[in-house]
Amino acid sequence: MRRGLIAWSKEQVPPSALDARVRRVQQALGAQGLDALLAYTNFTRPAAVSWLTHFIPYWSEALVVVLPEGAPLLLASLSKRMFPWAREVSHVGEIVPAPDLGRAAAAFVEQRALEHVGVVDLEHLPWSVAEPMGIGAELVDASELFAALRQPADRYENALAARATQIAERALAAIPGQPPHAAEILAAVEVTARLEGAEEIIPRISEIGDRTAVELSVAYKGVWIRLCRTYPLVADAESWFKAVLQDHAVPPPGKLTRRTVESCIGSSPLSVVEDQDRVYRRLPAGAQAVLSVRLNLEDGPWRAAAPFLVRA
């Protein structure tokens, strides 16, 4: 579950910024002949809904419905007692109780006579939601529509990503000098990141040859980044990675064995858009992304990951 800080600061993400994102979706709906766009959320796939409304489910599931006009509606299977909390942390219009999300969504679609319903990441929509809803309406995959709007990031998202990166850097800096156990590394990064206000942190520790790679995936107010460092640090590999992040063509100090670019283009916080073999989706300039690399150095493997903004 999400158990870090969940809060909405209107200074960090003004309602007008969220309204602008929703308006872009509404404009695209008409062009695609869709009656509505649905975005499903649980804490595994929260990204489309958090981008539109700042709603981040700590548990349970919900659907955001964007109609051609008006504020987005939230169909939430959370207990009604949680609705005041949901209002506090997000920017939505009506909140509709939906203890059985699939049936509630089906009823909503029927009441509104929605015939062509676009769904972000339809392929991942849980069957418990899709099955009842699909009976009365044509479900259309709106992943491409959404992905085309989702990037580049706006300045508010960039600021949140910068803060997430700062949290991850501080968490990595808190790792004890000679940690004998992975549990000590995990405890150090957890407490540091959460005290800094992380919404969530997913640490992964890998023993690679004589080195230890620590990757932290950190969420701050709905925006995810990854940061990976290999210990002990290798100066020339670190310098090379910094240069690559700044788009400089520099030969690696070893054999590049893996290269992955991830970005937020749908309901998943980060999806692979490019690897060493192919480009799955070309990102526009200004897109928020994460670069992960692996090198085989002369004395063993080495890894790194960091967020970056796609250049023109």
Binding site: L5, I6, R81, P84
Partner: peptide
């Protein structure tokens, strides 16, 4: 969370509430 990680426990479901008579449930930490 730091305590649980130090004990090798990777997962925890946790909600909380704080305050007085106005508090009507628990929620993720704010």
């Amino acid at each position: 969370e730091a305590f649980f990680r130090s004990r090798g426990c990777p997962e925890n479901f946790m909600i909380l509430g704080s305050g007085g008579v106005e508090v009507r449930g628990m929620h993720p930490p704010g």
